[in-house]
Each structure stands twice: as structure tokens, then as C-alpha cells.
């Protein structure tokens, strides 16, 4: 196999699914870092976002690319409502109860999608998109857009966290919640903001998953393990960690096909998760260990 083939068949798909994992892992790492629990409904939140976009494409005849920001906004709103209704009342109880509640929410979200859109796989638009050659690199336009949009979203979020008042408040809350409260940071506002970001990015992850392959009701749940592995690999609470972690998991998954039967692609995320917990539980970027 030539180097170019390796890139076209393994590295590019790896980076694409890696950026999708990264978008999901950012939300997971923010929730883990700021609200301090593992959110198991995150994958199904991505599924919901993808299907909301599908609904917009189908009913309003929108272009998928126009539907994407709307679906992100709707999913962000859903995330805030889910927190209000199902998670917030557990705030003062052991965090693991919220983890459990999120497992229930995962099931509920999925069944809503199954009832509304059915269980058959669907696509945003039919027809085969040919890959174009860029000096031997074979890329489809949707892959370029996926990569560009994911990069844009990540840079925007990082700038927000670095330079804005509320971005700093989120970091402060993740760093030292008691002190943040002593500084007058409103816990509720930060929680809401966290869910807006996590929900919107989850929807984007689901959408890109759907547009690069197909939509099915298990897609988010199947990606959940990879997203968690990415968040922990990068370091819990670290956005840049989630991005690097996502890309690493995506690449390793694709490259694993060279040595393992392709059915076991998913297992590589698990292996990476266990290895990182064994050798460096704080992750690459020295995140939190809860």
C-alpha cells in the first residue's frame, strides 16, 4: 500500500470521524469537568440533533447545511430543558444518581427518535458524491465542510472560554467551584451555558455522523464509548484534550482495520480507555480525575 492510499483510505476517514468524536467529547468533558458527572445521554442527544436536522430538511425542504445551525439551536434548548426537568433536582444528591438518570434519558431520547422517525436508516440527500482529487488526496466536499466546520466551532469555543467573562466563569467553575461561588459566579447560569454548548456541539456531531454515513437511531449510542474515551484520553475538563483525544481515537479506529477484523473497530476505543486509566488517568492534558 502506498502512502497516499494509506492517507486516502485510513487517515482521512479517521480524521473525519475523529472530528465528530471531538465535537461530542467536548460536551462530555465540559459536563464532566463543570457539573462533575458522566453524561450518558450525550450520544443520544447527538442522534436527536441529527434527526432534528433531518426533519427540517424533509419538512421545510432546507439544505442540510442550513438545517445544521437550526438543529444545533433546537438541541441546545432541549439540553437545557432536560437538565431542568431530569438532572437539576438531583444536584444535592450523590452525582452517580445523575449518571443513572442520564442513562434513563438516553433511552427516552432514543425512543422518541424511534417513534417519530422510525428505525430504518435514512440519509439527508440521496445520490453518490464523488471524491475529488487534490494532488492525489481524495476528498469529498462534505468531508472538507465537516473538517472546516468542526475546526471553526472548536476555535470559536476556545476563544469564548479564553477571552469572555462567562467563558472565564465556566473555567473557574470547572477549576474550583467553591471559590467561583465566593466570587459571585452564578452556578445556575454556568450550568445553563454548559448545556447550551454541549447540546449544540452534540447536534453538530450527530449531523456530521449522519451526513458522512447515514442516520440510524443507534448511531449516537454507538459513538458514546469513543466520545468518553476521547474525553478521558485528552484529560477531563480540557477542551483541547477532547479535540486531540477525539482525533486520536478516530485515527486509531480506522487504522486498527489494518490488523484487526473491522467488526472490532469499536473495541479499540475501549482498549485506549483502559490503557489511559492504567498509565495516565489524568489524560494527555492533565485534566481532572474524579
Amino acid at each position: 500500500m502506498s502512502g497516499l492510499e494509506l492517507i486516502n483510505f485510513y487517515v482521512i476517514p479517521g480524521l473525519i470521524s475523529g472530528s465528530i468524536y471531538a465535537l461530542g467529547a467536548i460536551g462530555i468533558t465540559l459536563i464532566f469537568g463543570i457539573l462533575r458527572y458522566a453524561h450518558f445521554a450525550h450520544g443520544d442527544m447527538a442522534t436527536l440533533g441529527a434527526y432534528v436536522a433531518l426533519g427540517l430538511v424533509g419538512s421545510l425542504a432546507l439544505s442540510p447545511w442550513v438545517a445544521l445551525p437550526i438543529a444545533m439551536a433546537i438541541t441546545a434548548l432541549v439540553a437545557v430543558v432536560l437538565d431542568r426537568v431530569f438532572y437539576r433536582h438531583l444536584e444535592t444528591r450523590p452525582k452517580i444518581l445523575t449518571v443513572m438518570a442520564s442513562l434513563g434519558v438516553a433511552l427516552m431520547l432514543r425512543s422518541v427518535v424511534q417513534v417519530v422517525w422510525g428505525v430504518d436508516p435514512q440519509v439527508y440527500s440521496t445520490g453518490i458524491v464523488r471524491a475529488e482529487s487534490y494532488g492525489g488526496l481524495m476528498l469529498r466536499s462534505r468531508e472538507l465542510i465537516t473538517f472546516a466546520t468542526a475546526t471553526g466551532l472548536v476555535l470559536f469555543l476556545m476563544a469564548f472560554l479564553r477571552y469572555t467573562r462567562w467563558g472565564k466563569a465556566m473555567r473557574a467553575m470547572s477549576d474550583n467551584p467553591e471559590l467561583a461561588r465566593l466570587c459571585g459566579v452564578n452556578n445556575e447560569a454556568v450550568t445553563r451555558l454548559t448545556w447550551v454548548i454541549a447540546g449544540a456541539l452534540a447536534a453538530a456531531a450527530g449531523f456530521f455522523l449522519g451526513i458522512n454515513t447515514e442516520l440510524n437511531t443507534m448511531m449516537g449510542w454507538s459513538a458514546l464509548l469513543a466520545m468518553f474515551a476521547a474525553a478521558i484520553l485528552g484529560g477531563v475538563g480540557r477542551v483541547e484534550g477532547a479535540v486531540v483525544g477525539g482525533l486520536v481515537i478516530g485515527l486509531v479506529e480506522e487504522l486498527s482495520v489494518l490488523v484487526l477484523p473491522s467488526q472490532y473497530k469499536m473495541a479499540t476505543a475501549f482498549v485506549i480507555l483502559i490503557l489511559i486509566l492504567l498509565v495516565r488517568p489524568q489524560g494527555i492534558f492533565k485534566g481532572k480525575v474524579l
Binding site: R165, K168, R171, A172, D175, N176, L179, C183, V185
Partner: peptide
């Protein structure tokens, strides 16, 4: 203003950002 005995800084933020957080309520 109150300075707790332990964990009284934002360890993962810069010195300047720590001061900014001190003035969080001032907008």
C-alpha cells in the same frame, strides 16, 4: 471579601485571570 484557607486560587487560570475573577461581580 473572604480568602479561604485551602484551595483559594484558580490553579488552572493565570494570575491575571484570578484577579479578573475577583472582580466578576463588577461586570
Amino acid at each position: 471579601s473572604y480568602v479561604p484557607q485551602v484551595k483559594n486560587v484558580f490553579a488552572e487560570m493565570t494570575v491575571h485571570e484570578n484577579l479578573e475573577m475577583g472582580a466578576f461581580l463588577a461586570k
